[in-house]
């Protein structure tokens, strides 16, 4: 069996009496899309925050690419190769689309402590940024102000910035949120092609997308993972059906 790229081992996080993350373990293997699903309030956001580095767990370990990153902050995990996208777009709204993408290339290049050379004239970073915009289909919008983009375009830009980092793994928090049927379909096709770049830990509410994309699915309910398996296994799992999918979803 191949070595997992991301290993979450026995993670615990409590807020007072609430166990938001209760002994969660999961792995992300090279080349796969691992979807994390669960009803509202299951603790998905808390778990994502701990994986991304914004929230420290009470117990447990996160190993990324052979390094224990449990004590790393968000920026250090990004430098280690974790490319994160947000549920609610986190972009520099006053920047142009291209500037946002160049910011990603800048982060990846580790050359932020330069004070004189105009960054937008840096051919290498610009090329990286333009390539990423091209891949998500935002080349025509490069000079637009980010605040003027549509919601769907912002979601794509969010992914493009993550692409400029050339990450070893993607951590995506509801990339389909608010996209509508057409946009969702486009994003699904795109993410499908992305797994060749790096594996994706995908938190998503859109079940069509999850079942179309995921190699493995983990179901989180009340802070615990109640099942992990392929799409078919999850569909057939009676515990999952009663806890989450409801009877109206027919496989």
């Amino acid at each position: 069996m191949t070595e997992p790229l991301l290993q979450i081992k026995g993670l615990h996080k409590s807020f007072g009496a609430l166990r938001a993350t209760d002994d969660v373990s999961l792995t992300l293997l090279p080349g796969e899309i691992h979807a994390l699903i669960g009803p509202n309030g299951a603790g998905k956001s808390t778990l994502i925050a701990q994986v991304a580095g914004g929230l420290a767990p009470n117990a447990g370990q996160i190993v990324f690419d052979g390094v224990d990153v449990t004590a790393f902050g968000t920026a250090a995990r990004a430098r280690a190769g974790l490319g994160r996208t947000f549920q609610i777009s986190a972009l520099a709204m006053e920047f142009t689309v291209l500037q946002n993408a160049v910011l990603g290339a800048l982060g990846a290049s580790r050359s932020v402590w330069r004070f004189l050379k105009p960054v937008m004239r840096d051919a290498e970073m610009r090329a990286q940024a333009e390539a990423a915009l091209d891949r998500v289909g935002l080349s025509d919008e490069a000079q637009k102000r980010t605040a003027d983009l549509s919601h769907g375009q912002r979601r794509l830009l969010e992914v493009a910035v993550a692409l400029t980092l050339a990450p070893k793994a993607f951590l995506m928090d509801e990339p389909m949120a608010g996209l509508g049927a057409e946009g969702s379909k486009r994003m699904t096709t795109f993410l499908d092609s992305l797994r060749a770049d790096a594996p994706i830990l995908l938190v998503e509410h859109d079940m069509d997308a999850v079942f179309a994309l995921a190699d493995r699915i983990s179901v989180l309910v009340y802070g615990q993972i109640i099942a992990t398996g392929t799409a078919d296994e999850i569909r057939a799992n009676p515990e999952v059906r009663s806890a989450y999918l409801g009877e109206e979803v027919s496989p």
Binding site: G54, T74, A75, R79, A92, M93, E94, G107, M120, V161
Partner: peptide, 18 residues
């Protein structure tokens, strides 16, 4: 660029490793 981005959205800057 990075400083201005940090003013607009600190989370974005951290996510690119700064």
């Amino acid at each position: 660029l990075a400083l201005s981005a940090a003013r607009q959205n600190a989370a974005r800057v951290e996510t690119v490793g700064l």
